[in-house]
Structures are given as structure tokens and as C-alpha cells.
Simulated assay, not measured.
Amino acid sequence: MLNRIAQRFFLCALLAGSLALTAQNVNLPTIKVQGKEYYYYKVQGGDSPYGICKKFGWDEQTLRECNSNFATKVKKGQTIYYPASPDYTPSVPDKKVAVAFPEAVTHTVARGETVYSIASLYGVPVAVIYANNPDSRHSLKVGEKLVIVQQEYINGTTTEPFFYTVRKGDTLYGLAEKYNASVESLMSENPGISERNFKTGTTIRIVPNSRKTVIVSETKQANTVVGFSQYKVQKNDTWESIAQSAGVSRDDLVSANPSERLPKKGGWVVVPKMEMKDRETLVEIPAEAEATIDDRDSIYNDVHHIDAAENKVDVAVVLDDPASKSNIDFIRGFIMGVDDLKNSGCKINLNVIDAAKA
């Protein structure tokens, strides 16, 4: 007798478990509010809180907490919500920026340059240079100024380099932020520039969207959905008026409802209940600290292989024509600068390279 009772109890338990397992696999529609996904279900005739939870394998306490005006009895047509997953999964924002090129930059012609080499340098057709500098069709002179008009817009995900003429108020760090580049890449692309010698009118090369980042988790106080209630639509109601009355944003209100169309008078609107709670957010930050002047000095030393601890600098000067007057004048001024550094206690390893023989 006892064996039969035990067998029946086991069969009932097995059947109940299989029903719960089947219920959890029921394909219900979902809706996303503030990045968290919820199942939603429209109450049918004969439904009860217990029956709904049994049907879908839900926890009744969680269901009641999620639906703040959930009563002992539910009404036919009422929409109820249940978390599709227990955890909030934050998303990482896309940091890539759409780059608008500056209208034009000025290029100073150097020895050996041609219209074709300059066009290749800036990535523009030769015809663009001719159109903005008509005399360049006939000849180029060393020291001549050419106006280079770059294309106006490029794809937001690009890492194609472009040239930029520094304007009043620009800073090295500010341009790195604007174009999602790193201070390190700006210094590498433009040897010698630093926060201290960044001058208006200087033309620099920028590689957009080249910033190296790491993803970190931050916890901040934010408005978070803690449940839902229902509101009966009145005459002259709008999404905006309901949201204002409920103290939620219009976007959060609309996203909590299956349709973006406001129900007619007498219909029901689901209102998310919000509370300030700690909320995890994933953010991208620069892989290398660069926000302070000391950070940028450290990056400058790394890029230019300066040993700050030993106060030692390795310098190489490449001269295209060492015997020319312009090169001689340059090297004289350069050596004066080197002497000043040596007199301040800095060790200099200087190499002069003849480009013609290199």
C-alpha cells in the first residue's frame, strides 16, 4: 500500500516538474526597458496569479514585485511583466566618431616635392590641387604656399589619416578627444610636438579613431526600473502628459508598452516604476593615462625615447644637402639648442645623417 502511494507521489512530482520545465520554454514576447528584457503577457479569462506562475514557471513573489498594482485577482486584458533574465547586461558605447575634415590646410613646398607627391601625401586628386592653386600647373617653388582642400566628410569608422591646421584655442589633448585619437598617436605622427610647443598655424597629421582603450566597469546611481503599474488613459492624455505625471521619461514609458500608439480613452498604459539604484555600466577609457600635463610629458618621453630618470636624449638629424646654406644655418641653430640642453645637465646622443649617402 505504501509502495503504491509512494509511486503515485513520485509520478505526480515528475509530472509537475515536467510541466514547469515545459512552461519555462513557452515562447512569450519580450520588451526591453533601459537595456533589461522583460516577458509580457496579457491576462486571459480564468487566469490567476498562481496559475500564471505555474504556467510559465515563474516565481510568484518576483511577479508581484515586478507589477506594483498586482492584486490577488487579475483582470482579463491586463498586461503583466516578468524579468526575462535576472541580471542587467550593460552595453559598451561605441566611441568611434564621424570625422569632418577642416575646410583646407596650407602646405609649404619643400625641396624635391612635386604636385603628384603632395597630392599623394594628402590623399587628394591632383586636379584638386590644380583647381585651388592654378600656378602649380606650370611650376612649384620651394617655400611656396599651397591650399589643400580635403574631402569634407569621411566614414565614421575610418582610421584614414588627414591633415589639420592648428587653430586658436586648440590643444593637443583636445584634438585627441575630438577625433578619438590618442595623445601618443599625435606625438608619433608629428615628431617633436608637445603640449608646450603646440602653436596656432602648425599643420599636423591626425589618425582618427586610433585611440587604444580598455573596458572597465563603473557603478553609478541611476534611475532603474523596479516594477510596473498600469494607468487608465483619460481624455486628452498624451505620452508626454502621462510620463510627466508619472515622473518618468517619455522614452522609458513608450518602451514599456508593446505598441508606440497610445491606447484610446479607457485603455491601459503600462508605467515603469523607477528608483535611484546602483547600476553597473561598462565604459571605455584610454589605455594610457593622458589627462594631465604630467601624463602627456611621460608619453612624450616614451615616444621620443627620452630617459627621464637619467635625463638622456637620443637625437638624429637628417640633412638632404649638408653643404647647402639652408642646412648649415639649420644645423648651427640646432647645435645651439643642444648646447643649452647640455648646459642644463641633459645628456645628448647626437647623430647627423647625410640623406644623400644614407
Rank of each mutant, 00 (worst) to 15 (best):
A110N: 11
E284M: 12
I328G: 10
T200R: 06
H138C: 03
A289L: 00
I242P: 01
T281F: 14
A131W: 00
E113W: 02
A356S: 11
P272E: 10
V214M: 07
L15N: 04
G174L: 12
L19V: 15
P49Q: 04
S241F: 02
R332M: 08
P49C: 02
W268G: 01
A309I: 05
I148M: 02
Y39R: 03
I328W: 02
R4N: 11
Y300D: 05
L140Y: 02
I206F: 02
L140P: 01
D47W: 06
E144G: 12
T165A: 09
N349H: 04
I118Y: 04
T171C: 09
F198C: 06
S245G: 14
A6K: 15
E160D: 07
K141N: 15
M187I: 15
K141G: 13
K54T: 13
S249M: 08
P322K: 11
G156H: 05
V254S: 04
V147T: 13
N197H: 08
N351R: 14
L253F: 05
T89M: 08
K36A: 14
Y41L: 12
C53R: 01
A71R: 13
A20Q: 14
K357D: 15
V283P: 00
G51M: 05
K75G: 04
P86R: 12
Q234V: 05
V233K: 09
Y122G: 03
L11S: 04
A20R: 12
E113G: 07
V338A: 04
Q78W: 01
Y39E: 09
N132R: 12
S259V: 07
V183W: 03
A308C: 03
L253M: 09
N351W: 03
W268M: 15
G247L: 06
V303H: 05
L262V: 05
N349R: 13
P134W: 07
E195L: 03
R8Y: 12
R196F: 14
K168N: 09
H138K: 13
E144Q: 15
K54D: 10
S91M: 11
S68W: 03
V269G: 02
L15Y: 10
G267I: 02
M336F: 04
Q24L: 09
N343C: 00
S91Q: 13
K212F: 00
E37I: 12
L28W: 08
Y173P: 00
G112Y: 08
S139A: 12
I215H: 02
A127T: 15
G123V: 12
E240G: 07
Q230N: 13
F10R: 13
S298M: 03
N257D: 05
Y130C: 01
H138A: 06
P161F: 09
Q7K: 12
